[in-house]
Amino acid sequence: MTTSTLPAAGTGEVAAEVADVAGRLRQLLTGLPPQDGVAVFGRVYLTVTEAVRAHLSCGDVFRTPADIARLDVLFAGRFLDALAPDQAPPSCWRPLLELRLHPGIRPLQYALAGMNAHIEHDLPLAVLDTCAALGCPPAELSGDFHRVNDVLAQVEEQVRERLLPSLEELDVSDPLLHLVSAWSIDRARDAAWASALTLWELRDRPVALSAATDALTGATGLVCRCLLTPLGDLRGRR
């Protein structure tokens, strides 16, 4: 379980917890240089958190906003916990933390690696945390879980426009184009949901659950390290 505290109340109080998460992300960003890979992902994540909070407040997307707010708080807590200086981060976060200031890695790579670690690893575990807190199976969160995709699709488009160099600056052989086309937020969330269902079925088998969780952490970290392959500035080398 994460360090975030779950209120046992309705939408208003839990939405306030989402606002608190946004505040913690802003505080994190003020202490980091802009080129830091954690800062790059942190800005992306703050944009996502603000978008989710806006929809929670107006009630135009989610059928059970209090439940989604709980999921959002627990989800964010896993990223913030990975940054805690007094504990070792999960292996899926180590590539980003180890390479956060590498001069050959481009900002969009940091954003993709952070999203991959957070969605593929943290999200299914946060779904399990939320189900435990609410006393419900994942199926009861399914509808709103997938409605989040609409919010994320808008944010992902903004992120790509902000971090992807213009097509005039990129050569067709630039490997950054291949990385961008190889990763999809929709596929990542589909995989996260499948992982959540699998881990839920293993909840009463602790040995199998631990093995599956460890495998998920390691596999996610492997993809993150591939996404953070230093590409340098190919235009400069030409």
Rank of each mutant, 00 (worst) to 15 (best):
R187L: 13
N116M: 07
G221N: 05
G143V: 14
A132M: 06
A84E: 13
E120H: 12
C58Q: 14
G236F: 10
C58T: 13
W200M: 04
L202W: 00
A69K: 06
G236D: 08
H118K: 07
E156D: 15
A8F: 07
P206M: 03
A8Y: 02
M115Q: 13
L80P: 03
E140D: 15
A113G: 08
R162C: 06
P95W: 10
L112R: 05
V52W: 02
V73Y: 00
H55P: 05
A54L: 06
T30V: 09
A22F: 00
L56T: 08
P85F: 12
L170Y: 02
I119S: 10
D190T: 09
A39F: 10
G104P: 02
F41C: 02
T47G: 10
D129A: 08
C136N: 01
P103H: 09
L228E: 02
R78T: 01
G236N: 03
A54K: 14
Y45V: 03
V207N: 01
V38D: 05
A66K: 10
L177I: 11
L228S: 01
L170A: 04
L141M: 07
S4G: 06
A182W: 09
W183A: 02
V172M: 09
L222H: 13
F79N: 03
L176K: 05
D72V: 07
A117T: 06
D86Y: 00
F79I: 04
V159A: 04
D144K: 10
H121A: 05
P137C: 08
T30A: 05
T217G: 00
F41R: 01
L227V: 04
P138T: 07
T229G: 04
G23D: 08
A22P: 03
D204Q: 12
P137W: 00
T47A: 14
A211W: 00
V127F: 05
L25W: 01
